[in-house]
Amino acid sequence: MKQTVAKLIDTTLCIGCKACEVACQEWNDQEFSQGVFHNSYQTMPDLAAHFWNLIKFHEVEKPAGPVWLMAKYQCMHCADAGCLRACPAPGAIIQRENGIIDFVEENCIGCGYCITGCPFDVPRLSPRTNKVYKCSLCSDRVAVGLSPACIKACPTSCLTFGSRADLKFLAEKRAEELRAEGFSAAGVYDGPGVGGTNVLYVLKYADEPELYGLPKDPKIPWTVRLWKGPLKWVGNTIFFGGILAAIVHYLKVGPKEAHEDD
């Protein structure tokens, strides 16, 4: 079996240079996106269909004074992916052997269910093509042994690419270091509620991921689970059971008597 690949984001080393954003746009040949200035060190207000990688910027008041928190935001490549569960079009969302969740444009029907299924609010529907897009973890680069474009561009080693097991080990070590430096809440964020994400974060304030714009306890929505689980069984039982019951009834009991010539 292939190793699961992952990306480690050590937010404590991010300087907010946006090199990763540019590299992502370049490699994936994205159409030009006009930046928006809204009194923040953030290029864009949000992810977009053709903007897959955003450094979120948050200014937070802490007892020791104000802190700047930068966190790269993109698809988390969940082991148990909500988008994949919700998708009705076979082959539109695939989970590769190395753990990458890839959207396949030609199979996408533009229903937007993946947007609802995603606990991280990542996929975006393009009004122009009516298809959904997101970070592919540069699956085309990874397939030929290269690291993703964002990783390649990062000047501070905030971003690391490798096997998930290795990076998890590194991340835990780094968190330990931070705790030793006095950041008692430092820790690793990797979404246990979705079977683990293949994007790992080291956070100084791991007890408050919301400060970074990350969901506190990401989980596949229960309505999606109920719909794709029990409801599907109940529904199929009713469809096929109903048809079967009609056949049995017709053969055993048959039609009511006709009164054609009364």
Binding site: K256, E257, A258, H259, E260, D261, D262
Partner: peptide, 8 residues
């Protein structure tokens, strides 16, 4: 038919 109506 009337017979149908009566029966059903």
């Amino acid at each position: 038919r009337p017979g149908w109506a009566k029966a059903h």
